[in-house]
Design a protein around this nucleic acid. Structure first.
Lengths: 368, 368
DNA sequence: CTGAAAGCGCTTACAG
DNA sequence: CTGAAAGCGCTTACAG
């Protein structure tokens, strides 16, 4: 037991941290209001427009003046007021990302990746979360996105109801990611039908003849495209009579909905030997339902998911799935928005489709 | 095989959706600029301040006038410009939520829950994602949060470096969630030490004597508190000689870091019979490392996680863990912020601590 | 190279 | 009950 309590480098690091005191001094300024351009100008003995010019590096300012103003700015820690500036310039320098549900691992990852590119390119981003609520979505679009942001990236959120026509009529440059493909709005999307086709075909090639599909929320175009791909693969291999689609009882693509859907499938024999499931989280939930009744993956039933989220690799067995190139989706979306903002591209022509990829892991097996 | 392709209600629902056409008419207005209050006033034959009064329901306006103005507003779909309004009133009506990393399931869930309460109470929210980047965090705070938002809820993000003193010096009402407890800033936090204590004690009561701890990112106070709780439980039961802490090689509390940490533990025998892991995702990753080398949970080693995220219930075996009351955390945080905004509470007195709860599931077992 | 003027779209006193 | 005036903090022409 003596060797057991050994302190390795990690433990040492730990102790160091435990002793760290993060107190910090109070701020230098105790002013209750942030300084204004007027104050900087007075302090520097110049006019506000001179300050404005040095802040924005516009106009021509004498080096000495510039220097003096810069020092004051530094000293009082002046920052131009974005609201006032955008009131004049009619732009905020911000881009907005609106997601259907920030709680979804794939949507939050796309959002985060878009932020990554945006920051790398010197833009700032605001996140809007519609929380699956159509009314909220609409409000966000109308009241905030339109007024606060120069451009908008809408992730997975425009599919139902009246938001699409609204967006079309709106003047704010918008790119749709993972939404209803729409010929009049710039968009980047995955070839969902292809992904579903690849998943299903993989199962067919493994010898499976009875393949069911647990779909995503069918009010969303991406979910409908995935059932189309599944169906087409079946048809191409003469298996259309075996088609069987279970759609979940909720609009979340989460563990629970996959779990419940699989329970439904189990309740109505015969059981298929393989199931293609429209999302990885759902697939993991579905597997849970299987394991609960003593069925093993892939021994008793093969499973293929969709998305390739982190959890897929760490499930046991690791989940065979369809990888969405999220990083590329994000980069393309941002680039498209930049082009829209600079007017160098026509939205109608800006339709990007990215290809998914089959990742074979341990949840699928060949049957005889 | 005939019964196999049966069409149940779900399938029917699916077909319906597949046939749906979401075309939508173009918007009624093709104006390139949103209407201004000036335009509404002219159309209604009144002054802008009259329009302002009917929009804000201030002052006293003749019923007939109000009606006429309201109709114009409706007709041209006028919406007051938030930027202009906030320029005058010095407030935006928005609250900001700043999270360390929106990609984390627990942080995004807290954010989403806070949004839920905020919307229920008629507020709108903006999300800021620091992406684990201290510089970005600082920029967000200084340039955006301070100017765009009336109040701020900071989730898990203030712990290191210079942001804490900045926040103290700042005038924006702020509540800290899951951060370094700080006596001068309002905060709501979990009793992390207690949670860790409960987890460890549970293992001890099950007969485990050699219990290791895989910690979270120790630059974060919450992680340090959890090792403290683990340590105290050991000490209280005379097991302090068996203390063993492995800290991850990254600042993400993700699957991979738990996986890597467990591999480290495996590489340096003797193996403990139980491991308390600072986050559920890490626990699932850790289990993966175990299973890979043929060790079973809970037969060979018991695991307890922390957080009780969705994935915990759907892991196999279901993960024993410490539940964080996220919904309550969110509600308390928002309420605190409201009180701060209305000035009815003193930040120094506003320190809320919530209690965690042990959830026993299948990943822990009694040993002899 | 620098400053006086005008205005972005609102709201808040204040007259009438 | 309604409107003229002033101003929130900036930037953009335009003089000098």
């Amino acid at each position: 037991m003596s060797g057991f309590a050994l302190v390795d480098i990690h433990e040492r690091k730990c102790y160091d941290w435990l002793n760290v005191q993060l107190e910090g001094r109070a701020g230098d300024l105790l002013s209750s209001k942030p300084p204004t351009m007027r104050e900087v100008a007075d302090l520097a003995g110049v006019s506000v427009q001179t300050v404005s010019h040095v802040v924005n590096e516009t106009g021509s300012i004498a080096a000495a003046t510039r220097e003096r103003v810069a020092q004051i700015i530094e000293r009082v820690n002046y920052r131009p007021n974005l609201i006032a500036r955008s009131m004049r310039t009619r732009e905020t320098g911000l881009i907005g990302i609106l997601v259907l549900d920030i709680t979804s691992p794939v949507l939050s990852l796309i959002a985060s990746e878009v932020e990554g590119v945006a920051y790398a390119r010197g833009h700032k981003v605001l996140l809007y979360d519609a929380r699956h609520d159509a009314r909220l979505l609409r409000e966000l679009l109308e009241q905030f996105a339109e007024q606060l942001v120069d451009g908008l990236i809408v992730v997975n959120a425009i599919d139902r109801g009246s938001t699409l026509p609204w967006l079309k009529a709106s003047t704010i440059p918008t790119v749709l990611v993972d939404c209803l493909p729409n010929p009049t709005l710039a968009s980047v999307a995955m070839d969902n039908e292809r992904g579903a086709y690849l998943a299903t075909e993989h199962l067919i090639e493994l010898g499976h003849g009875r393949i069911a599909h647990i779909s995503g929320d069918l009010t969303l175009e991406v979910a409908r495209q995935r059932v189309l791909g599944y169906r087409r693969a079946l048809t191409d291999h003469g298996l259309q009579a075996n088609e069987r689609v279970i759609s979940p009882d909720s609009d979340r693509w989460d563990y629970r909905s996959g779990y419940v859907a699989m329970q439904e499938l189990l309740a109505r024999p015969p059981m298929p030997s393989a199931v293609f499931i429209a999302a990885d989280q759902m697939a993991i939930g579905a597997q849970h339902a299987l394991v609960e009744v003593g069925l093993k993956v892939p021994d008793d039933v093969s499973l293929v998911g969709f998305d390739d989220i982190d959890a897929a690799s760490y499930a046991w067995p690791p989940l065979t799935t369809i990888r969405q190139p999220l990083t590329e989706i994000a980069a393309r979306a941002f680039d498209l928005l930049s082009e829209l903002l600079s007017g160098t591209v026509d939205p109608v022509k800006a339709q990007i489709t990215l290809q998914p990829e089959l990742v074979v892991r341990g949840s699928t097996r060949r049957i005889s």
